[in-house]
Amino acid sequence: MKKIIFSMACLALILGSCQKNANDITPEQQEIAVDMSDFYVYTSDDNTVKSGHVHGPKCGSMTVLNRQLKENPGLENRLYAIEKHTRQLIAAKSSSSTNKGKPVKPGDTPDPTPYQGSITIPVIINILEDANHPVTQANIDSQIDILNDDYNDLNPATGAVPSEFNNAIANVDITFVLAGINRKVSTKTSWGTNDAMKLSSQGGIDATDPSFYLNFWICEIGGGILGYAQFPGGALATDGVVIGSDYFGRNTLGGQYGYGRTATHEVGHWLNLRHIWGDGNCRQDDFVTDTPGSDQANYGCPSYPTVNCRSNDMTMNYMDYVDDQCMYMFTNGQNDRIRAIFAAGGERESFVIQ
């Protein structure tokens, strides 16, 4: 009988302990469930074939990401974790908005959401100087101005956004501040996309503290590439954005791409935005709810509406491939993705906790 009573007491103690542990879990420890079934990393290296564009790709970011994934087997898991964290914060924001006004229970702590408030990003410009493709102070100053216009909804062309997309226009509220310029004479006419320009050991310029500065490298890339960026999660030594010399800031040598929007587009990748068409078919998304589905890039200055995947393309979005003067908006959904990486635990949190 004593054995039975003792056994029952032990069982009660175990059950009580389990219950106590379950009750001790804080909201921060309870993981928000999100669907990751659509997540992808690898894409086609050539996103221009379907569009029929004959001048080659504008942006090398996805090609560079494919290379980095092959070179670093752990990168895919890191990108998955960043994406999951991003979706959890956005889901928490949506839940918080839905439950606004409802009473909060004592001891409840709200789930973290995308970073709120203004963001300032100091910028380092690293220039591999080519006498035939000069980068002047005027180019640099104009590029900083353009980035600030575009990321603060001050692009005057935004007034042309079709009414269908008006409610989606975002003020990303990021200010870019020039923090330093490094120049190095180079006779190299084509640096390619293997990140050599970012390493002094390969003739380039080493990054300046990428945890606290956005590094730009300005050089001749070659291969029809206007620029490329490294997504959050890659190696710190190569973190930043590369822009072709003729496409940095206002520059007549850049033609239709000489109005500084290559940097706006590539910084978008650095801030974790994908191409608006998702670099795939109609079912492959850019992970943003308020951008229409599409299966190809747009070029030139497309007329509205341009229809793909049975919806009107948001051709004026900075993450498409249209001419510089024909891109003039980010969306609220893109803004949420950007702000998630600055939140607690986000890949670029260091920029807001200096």
Rank of each mutant, 00 (worst) to 15 (best):
D239R: 14
Y257Q: 14
R261P: 11
A235Y: 09
F216T: 06
G227F: 03
K184E: 00
R261Y: 11
P232T: 03
I205V: 08
G203M: 01
P210H: 07
T264F: 15
A263N: 07
F248M: 02
A207S: 15
G244W: 10
N272C: 05
G234Q: 10
T238P: 13
R183Q: 11
T193N: 05
Y213T: 05
G203Y: 02
S186P: 01
L226Y: 05
S190H: 02
D206S: 13
F231R: 04
P232H: 00
Q230Y: 15
L271R: 14
S200V: 11
S245Q: 08
I205W: 12
R250G: 14
L199M: 11
H265N: 01
F231V: 04
G260P: 09
G234Y: 10
F216I: 10
Y259D: 14
K184H: 11
T193D: 02
K198Q: 13
S211T: 07
T208L: 13
G223Y: 00
V242M: 10
Q202P: 00
A207P: 09
I243T: 07
I218H: 00
G240H: 14
G254R: 09
P210W: 01
P210F: 04
V241H: 15
S186Y: 08
G258R: 07
L226S: 06
G244Y: 14
E266A: 04
A207W: 07
T187Y: 02
F248P: 06
G255Y: 04
Y257R: 11
I218Y: 01
S186Q: 05
G249L: 15
L273E: 13
I218G: 00
R274H: 15
A229C: 13
L253M: 15
W191S: 02
Q256H: 09
D209H: 03
Q202C: 07
T238C: 12
L253C: 12
A237K: 15
Y213R: 00
